[in-house]
Nucleic acid binder design. Structure first.
Lengths: 207, 207
DNA sequence: CGCATTTCTGCGGTCAGTGCAGGCTTGCAG
DNA sequence: CTGCAAGCCTGCACTGACCGCAGAAATGCG
């Protein structure tokens, strides 16, 4: 697929990673607002102006992996087996995410602590999440044979996303003590909720 | 209750309203990004510096009524009749909102059009909505006798909020052609969904 | 090696947002 | 109606994010 990365692209990717790494270190030391773009640039050995060739805003550094993550889910939804629901595909995807949750762990924890005391980051997170919402809604709408703007896809996607965010907000301390399959159970509870809700909608008469 | 507003407060409220009015006019003319705080200040006959005594950010002008609106819902939830659910209280509150939906109509339409082509405003909206989410979750958690962080309140609040936002995003054209009780029906569908979902959770064994 | 393409960098500029200090208005007490 | 205290408005100076542009530098390729 991505054969022969080429020197140029390799360097670019490396620079990007350096920016993220150095930035997160600085953020943890002095807080998000205590670090300027100039500081990050200095730490990553690039010109301040160059920073903006890699990230549109300072906030985006914190969510550097979001685009890739979203693309991954999107791909997964597009290429899902014939009989599989969007929600089921989401479940599989999440399971994989949880599996490979070792190296990201530090970054994840850092992200969380930053969001706790930096409102603009919490807001940014919501914006990123809403992109997941859209992707999910599109899939769900197809599943239910509804319009993307319709109420049912909105309800289902919102609840699914709430489960995702719930997982995201589990306190770090708790993470380690969770059983291997535990995180998925959260989604499964949400799944049950969704199915129950949809059933109720298809069976009118309960008020 | 609020007897004797006092000259000072009256003036302040008036200034605030002037800022909002003039700002929205300018935004519609030249777009959100085409208007500077200095422009707004000039139009409202205040010093640029003074603008920030009224609104923390330029974005907040667009959501000037949010705080009041949130406080209204919050109050409503706190003072709801003994047997009433949080969701039911939300329903009542929404019904009232829809009733008095005449003067706000223009502002609402303006807000929507601005959010359509200004990403930062759409993001800001999400942030504001998340405050509603929190208030709802708190109420729902009490209803269900769950923790605020628990999954069920999250699921229910998220779905309720999705219904709210769905209402919010109905195209303007459609608004006028809606039957009087129509908007509430959206919430009622969501309500049915919620109840179905909760029932499913309380009756384990499906899936 | 030499050329085309892409990337990096510095410069200058715009604008949001903030702390501070001084001037003006309002509320209130005498 | 007068003076004083509290709160509001304003200008100033400043920080820092972000952008357009044009030239320098690196890279890919023939």
């Amino acid at each position: 697929m991505t054969d022969a990365p080429g020197l140029r692209e390799r360097k670019k990717r490396q620079t990007r990673e350096t920016i993220v790494r150095e930035a997160l270190v600085l953020f943890q030391e002095r807080g998000f607002d205590g670090v300027t773009v100039a500081d990050i640039a200095a730490a990553a050995n690039i010109a301040p102006r160059t920073f903006f060739a890699y990230f549109p805003t300072k906030e985006d550094v914190v969510f550097a992996d979001h685009e890739e993550s979203l693309a991954g889910l999107s791909e997964r939804l597009r290429q899902r087996p014939a009989g599989q629901t969007t929600i089921d595909a989401l479940r599989d995807w999440l399971a994989e995410m949880v599996e490979s949750h070792d190296t990201t762990d530090q970054v994840e924890a850092c992200r969380k602590s930053l969001m706790r005391d930096t409102p603009s980051l919490a807001t940014q997170r919501l914006a990123k999440m809403s992109e997941f919402d859209l992707v999910l809604r599109e899939g769900i709408a197809r599943d239910l044979d509804d319009a993307v703007d319709a109420l049912r896809p909105r309800l289902v996607a919102a609840a699914a996303l709430a489960a995702l965010m719930s997982l995201d907000e589990v306190h770090e301390d708790q993470w380690d003590s969770l059983a291997p399959g535990e995180p998925i159970k959260v989604l499964d509870v949400a799944l049950t909720f969704l199915r129950g809700g949809l059933d109720a909608l298809q069976t009118p008469g309960s008020m």
